[in-house]
Design a protein around this nucleic acid. Sequence first.
DNA 1: ATTGAGACTTGATGGGAGGGGC
DNA 2: GCCCCTCCCATCAAGTCTCAAT
Length: 594
Amino acid sequence: SADCVLSNESVLFTCFRTSSPKRRQKTRKEQKERKWEEERSTDGSKWRFLEHKGPVFAPLYEPMPDKVKFYYDGKPMKLSAPAEEVATFFAKMLDHEYTTKDIFRKNFFKDWRKEMTSEEKTKITDLNKCNFSEMNEYFKAQSEARKQMSKEEKQKIKEENERLLQEYGFCLMDNHKERIGNFRIEPPGLFRGRGDHPKMGMLKRRIRPEDIIINCSKDSKHPKPPPGTKWKEVRHDNKVTWLASWTENIQGSIKYIMLNPSSRIKGEKDWQKYETARRLKKCVDRIRTQYRDDWKSKEMRIRQRAVALYFIDKLALRAGNEKEEGETADTVGCCSLRVEHIKLYPKMDEQEYVVEFDFLGKDSIRYYNKIPVEKRVFKNLQLFLENKQPEDDLFDRLNTSILNKHLQELMDGLTAKVFRTYNASITLQQQLKELASDDSLPAKILSYNRANRAVAILCNHQRAPPKTFEKSMQNLQTKIDEKQNQLSAARKQLKAAKADHKASHDDKSKKAVELKRKAIQRIEEQLMKLQVQATDREENKQIALGTSKLNYLDPRISVAWCKKWDVPIEKIYNKTQREKFAWAIDMAEKDYEF
DNA sequence: ATTGAGACTTGATGGGAGGGGC
DNA sequence: GCCCCTCCCATCAAGTCTCAAT
């Protein structure tokens, strides 16, 4: 386990220098991908030179045409521009369930009133008496009109967007032109939290140049604020990676403009993340032995730590930081689990010592799972639950800071989330091994998706079944049925052609037989493809693959798998993903081992 | 130890571009 | 050539984790 103590930094440099001698032969790539090979500073600075044009602001508010009326208590009422703007935010959402929720309405009305003139404030005292329906219809008509635009008009908009992208969407960092992730400032609107958010409906205010801190290098051409405005500050901090920041008014947190995942600075960090997970691989046995041992500790805090770590490792739970009550939706992770979130069953069906988890995790996504645990874990949990109320913490002697401090001692750079990365990637690698086959290309891709799916299930990456799911499934089934009919029809034709040939023995009929054979083969292939598609889609109904693919799976595993099985990388990663994983595509050979 | 600011990663969602099937 | 449907991508919220002040 000496490997475990190596710092990330040294591993990084080692990899850069030794990883891929073959790259020498790649000519086009070589010029493009040089950035992965450059020396990195060791003093914590993230760049030496940074130049950009600053953010793009949200378009200014365009007042409603006079004919579009707002009604209060049944009577038309002209609103002041600021009040009208906020009213339109609500009007746009009228069809959404949000606007029927009490908290949403309350928060909205409170913030809306702040934008009103004193007369408006006196007059408008009850949201229930407000009628936004004309505004709502106006916006619907607008979006309809947008859809109906001519090709030329659409083209013009596209070109304008492209121009904006070219001008503001890139920066110069050290020697590379890099794509910026989010160069557009978020427009004002009504805050929509996820789940039961106490702040839903609050006004997300418009961001002005005076709110923006610019970060760039001193010797660069500084971005200019729009005419007549000033930046809040221009600083030159090369210990951070962001280009601009502002404080958002709902939670008071800072938002950033940063580079695209394809950038050197993000790619390297991503790479480093997987290298840390690989170091965990080398010492995970030792760590597991230790936490199992700690289940027997005479100290309560150590037992809690050990059981929590077991959950994080086995179930890929998130760390679970504490949250300020009333500021966000009530969600939890491992360390913040409460008594009410688990149930213990000494016996359930055929199994012993079953723990049932039921809680809301990140984004208020429900985590529901029943798992049998070892007796010692079960007994510990019973102990932790003693004399507690449902709303008490399960791990009252533990938090993420204590846990991570402990993990840091076990391995340099180890934190709770590394287990998620490690378990996700190792699961993919194992599954791909098991699923390896010399099947057709679609079958191989189904295998890959299944491996990906196993990870998504582990990480509880869910999605709402697409609204059109049932219908599109039916459509697919219809296609399959049709294809099957086509196949039997083709088979009959082949039979007939054969009979024909037998009778005549001429060249023409021989050719006909061959043609029919080919046709059948083609139809069979098409049918297979459809069936694979159906299986894949059905299994994917409530599972989202994207998040794990993008954030948890070491891309080198996938690249290697593609090389090994002769699957074009394009079948696994789309263009954006290939850009993000350029470093891995460049680096991994077919024998790569996570 | 506790708190909070700050920086950065991870997450679900929905609109719309564009590709495939008829 | 049209339409439908898929998938891509932007969006922006919500996590994790570090660091420094108290």
